[in-house]
C-alpha cells in the first residue's frame, strides 16, 4: 500500500526517537542526521510496509551558502511509493554515512558526488574519483570552483 511522505516521516519518528529526523513540507522530503543515515536507510529498505528496494538517484548539491546536500530519491517497486531524503552537511566538514552497502546503486553515485561536489561518504569501501582523472584537484561542481589553467601541460580554457 502506497504511503505519503508525511506518513513515512511519522513512522520514522516513532522508530528512531533518538535520531533527528525532520520533515520539509515544501518539497516534500525528509532530512536525516548525516552520520545516522545508514541506520535509517536499512529500516527504510527492510520494514515491511516501507520496502524501499530501489535507490533511483543520489545527487550531491552545493547549496552555495556553505552547505552541501546529499539527496537520495527512493522508490519502492513493491508498494509503488517514493521518498526524498536529504542529508545536509557543512562544506568544511562534509561527512555523510555511506549507504553503498544498503543499495549498491549508491556505490557509483556516491563516488560521483564525492568526485564532483566533494562530499565524503564515511564507510564507502572504494571512495575514488570516478569521472575526473585521479590526479585532478578540486571538485568541479562546487559553486566557487575555478577551472585550472593547465592540466598535465595541456591548456584547459578555450
Amino acid at each position: 500500500m502506497a504511503l505519503e511522505p508525511k506518513e513515512i516521516y511519522e513512522k520514522l519518528q516513532a522508530a528512531f526517537p533518538d535520531i533527528s529526523v525532520e520533515f520539509d513540507e515544501a518539497v516534500p522530503c525528509i532530512i536525516v542526521e548525516p552520520m545516522k543515515w545508514k541506520t535509517v536507510a536499512l529500516f527504510l529498505r527492510d520494514a515491511d510496509d516501507l520496502k524501499f528496494d530501489s535507490l533511483m538517484c543520489l545527487s550531491g548539491v552545493d547549496n552555495g551558502d556553505g552547505n552541501l546536500v546529499s539527496v537520495c530519491h527512493l522508490d519502492s517497486l513493491a508498494h509503488r511509493h517514493k521518498l526524498t531524503v536529504k542529508c545536509v552537511v557543512p562544506a568544511d566538514d562534509p561527512k555523510v554515512e555511506s549507504v553503498e552497502q544498503v543499495w549498491r546503486t549508491a556505490d557509483w553515485h556516491e563516488r560521483e558526488a564525492y568526485d564532483l561536489i566533494g562530499i565524503e561518504y564515511v564507510g564507502h569501501r572504494d571512495l575514488r574519483r570516478i569521472l575526473m582523472p585521479y590526479d585532478w584537484t578540486g571538485h568541479p561542481l562546487c559553486k566557487d570552483y575555478e577551472v585550472p589553467e593547465f592540466y598535465n601541460g595541456i591548456k584547459v580554457p578555450y
Binding site: 533511483m56 538517484c57 545527487s59 548539491v61 553515485h109
Partner: peptide, 29 residues
C-alpha cells in the same frame, strides 16, 4: 530510467540539474 533532478531558484538558469543516466547504474553491475 532516465531521471532529472532539477532544482530551481526562481531565476532563468537552473540552480542544479543532476541527470541520473540509466547506463551509469546498468554498467555498475
Amino acid at each position: 530510467e532516465l531521471g532529472y533532478y532539477i532544482i530551481s531558484d526562481g531565476t532563468g538558469t537552473p540552480f542544479r540539474i543532476k541527470a541520473r543516466a540509466p547506463g551509469f547504474s546498468n554498467l555498475s553491475v
